[in-house]
Measured scan of single mutants.
Amino acid sequence: ALNRGDKVRIKRTESYWYGDVGTVASVEKSGILYPVIVRFDRVNYNGFSGSASGVNTNNFAENELELVQAAA
């Protein structure tokens, strides 16, 4: 299972961040479909780089994520 702070690569092909590595911000335990919230260094097309207006978190299912580096 994934944990907060883990570095993960995104495998959801239609995602803006496909192939990117993000950090797990939190994992919901309530049984929702996309329980893993991942935070990225770059914002998506809703904002400009360096601006706070873009979105830099997204929810994924565990099977859409590949663990790159476990949290220390």
Rank of each mutant, 00 (worst) to 15 (best):
A52C: 15
R39P: 01
G47C: 15
D6H: 02
G31Y: 12
R42G: 06
G22L: 04
K29I: 09
N46C: 15
G50Q: 08
A71M: 10
Y16F: 14
G31A: 12
R42P: 04
V68K: 01
K7N: 03
N63P: 04
S15M: 02
A61E: 05
E28V: 11
R9Q: 05
N59Y: 11
G22D: 02
F40M: 03
E14H: 09
E66K: 03
Y34R: 14
S26I: 08
V36Q: 00
G50K: 02
V27I: 09
S26L: 08
G50T: 10
N3Q: 12
G31K: 08
K29D: 11
A70T: 12
L65M: 02
E66Q: 07
S30M: 07
V68H: 02
S49Q: 13
T13S: 10
V68P: 01
N59V: 06
R9K: 11
I32G: 15
V36N: 01
S26K: 14
I32M: 12
E62A: 12
N63L: 05
R39C: 14
G54F: 07
A70E: 14
E28S: 11
S53Q: 13
T57P: 04
T57K: 07
T23N: 02
V38L: 01
V55E: 09
W17D: 15
K29P: 11
K11L: 15
T23K: 04
Q69K: 08
V38A: 00
N46Y: 06
G31D: 13
N58Y: 11
E14P: 04
G54I: 07
G19C: 09
S49T: 13
G50L: 06
E14C: 09
S26D: 12
K11H: 10
N46P: 12
S30D: 14
L33W: 04
Y16D: 03
V43M: 08
E28C: 12
L2H: 02
V27A: 02
K11M: 14
V8P: 01
I32R: 08
S30A: 11
G31S: 10
K29R: 10
G31W: 12
Y45S: 15
I10L: 08
R42E: 10
Y34M: 08
A70R: 14
K7L: 12
N3R: 15
I37N: 08
E64R: 00
G54W: 05
Y18C: 04
